[in-house]
Design a protein around this nucleic acid. Structure first.
Lengths: 318, 318
DNA sequence: CTGAAAGCGCTAACAG
DNA sequence: CTGTTAGCGCTTTCAG
């Protein structure tokens, strides 16, 4: 009877139809929990991110949910606030529920001990970071370093020479990659430039503080590249407060291309990162990992980024 | 042995400790799936919303997840895009997985047939809408009508007489409540005012179109109340494009107080809605519903709203 | 091709 | 207070 409903292999067609008809009439719906208990697959996957309120993750989550849904899986949402303990708690709890796999953003490099614990849990995991050496997990990520370089070249092309980069803490992997690409590109320009790089808190208010500090020490700056769009919004706010006009006096660039970067005024020039696709791809890789239960060949996917030119940058009029 | 690990009722303390110690040493973790199968409670709840990318829902989701987490439950995320079919599909699928309850935003009144289907599924549901008459579900919602009235009184107080309200489709329950409260308050003012009300699509571009239409037909408008913050951003954009200065020439108000309303320029005056708390409360009610398995007394919770005064509105200088 | 039985890992009810 | 047993509802295997 199970055979009739599911695959229908080795069942007489007429019998099958009869079973199906009765099932239909009785409004029968199989208990997926019971099924999972015996098959060992729960058809649900975990998404452990820092905070769903971050528009970047909301977009990733949507891509992931759509892909999961398409594969008949549920997505369980976990907000870790980047707290290592919370993260491990979630992962363990998900594993206990026999989740099929986990998608997580460990934005800073995993400690070796933590990494070992994760491996020990023997649950497929896809990380939203650059592949780290000696890291056994699959990864999906945008090319942050290349993005930083694109931003640098764009500002150079507009004739900027006094350039600053405002970013988050040093241990934040993705932000650091952006900074590296940016600085590298400026340094290797025909006429090398040494940008000002300020580290702070990677949010709106953090960026406001950084910008104030920057204006104090380097009032002559003509272009600011922020670590992400939200920070760019903070830069814009602080600049307006200081009476600087954008883009006339100072050019501002962001990173991510979240939806609201097109909404603010002035519309923000930024580096686009395919957030939705990252979520999608991560789920697809995860599902592939869970299907073949033997060979755990980690898969890595690096997405390209692109410049989105809006109205927050302008050519310097020397 | 189950007793020792779980409650520990009717077990000798020493025996209990011994069992616990062995469990610890063996790294034993109970299979929550198997437990759920027998207890009938899965300790996970479904969140069926239109789109997690909407900052409003992201905030609600975070509140819900935190509350769920505190109660030892998982939150499974479902994006319905407000598609009735998708919604039913998710609800059924969640029920088949023996989810403990469902939280959903059916932003337009449920059709009677759909409502019956939901009731027939016999799964606890909390709706993120105003309690509808003859509706058997619990609800958690902000007082949209009162919010509309607050907005109206504020604009009146600033001396505005030529006022417009830009909102979404008529069948959108929450938006309609805002409009009703707004119009009602203006009509019942000492010197009654009949505002212009335009219905369109409740998003950024929809608001841009509505604003253009408004400026064509009523160029003398001095204040615009948008159905939500995102729409207000669209209004601001269209106004800037048309060369109108904000708030000097036209005042703009939003609704929701999403995080970015404080970030844009000019900072948006809006009606605050306790989004996080709504998510939290919804989960708490849901959990209460699931605990006592007999009496399904629907519970309703209406949250107050408040004015957040920023810089997008100004007193009219007659 | 179809029916019956074993068992997934747990809890609950039952004896000892 | 402790050990055993009977299912939860399904899939899988094994007889018929």
């Amino acid at each position: 009877m199970s055979r009739a409903l599911s695959g229908g292999y080795g069942v007489h067609e007429r019998t099958r139809e009869r079973v199906l008809a009765v099932a239909e009439r009785l409004g029968y719906r199989p208990n997926r929990l019971a099924r999972s208990l015996v098959t060992g697959r729960s058809h649900s996957i975990g998404l452990v991110i820092s905070d769903i309120r971050n528009p970047f993750f909301a977009e990733v989550a949507r891509g992931a949910e759509d892909a999961a849904q398409a594969a008949g899986c549920d997505l369980v949402l976990c907000n870790s606030d980047l707290d290592a303990e919370k993260q491990m708690h979630y992962v363990r709890s998900l594993r206990d529920k026999r989740i099929d796999g986990i998608l997580m953003n460990s934005v800073w490099a995993l400690e070796r001990k933590q990494q070992e614990q994760l491996v020990a849990l023997a649950v497929p995991i896809v990380l939203l970071t650059r592949p780290a050496s000696g890291n056994a997990f699959s990864t999906v990520c945008a090319d942050n370093e290349a993005g930083g370089a694109v931003a640098a070249r764009y500002l150079l092309e507009l004739g900027h020479r006094k350039i600053a980069h405002l970013t988050g803490p040093r241990r934040h992997g993705n932000l650091t990659a952006r900074a590296r690409g940016f600085v590298q590109a400026l340094k290797s320009a025909p006429e090398p430039i040494e940008p000002v790089v300020l580290h702070g808190t990677n949010n709106f208010t953090g960026a406001i503080e950084l910008t104030r500090k920057l204006l104090d020490t380097r009032p002559g700056i003509t272009a600011i590249f922020a670590g992400n769009d939200i920070m760019a919004f903070g830069v814009v706010r602080a600049l307006i407060e200081a009476g600087r006009r954008i883009p006339d006096e100072v050019s501002v660039m962001g990173f991510d291309n979240i939806e609201l970067s097109a909404v603010v005024h002035p519309p923000l020039t930024t580096i686009h990162q395919p957030k939705y696709e990252i979520g999608q791809a991560a789920v697809e890789i995860l599902l592939r990992l869970t299907s073949r239960r033997g060979d755990q060949v980690p898969e890595h996917r690096l997405f390209g980024v692109s410049l989105v030119e809006r109205q927050s940058c302008r050519r310097v009029t020397a």
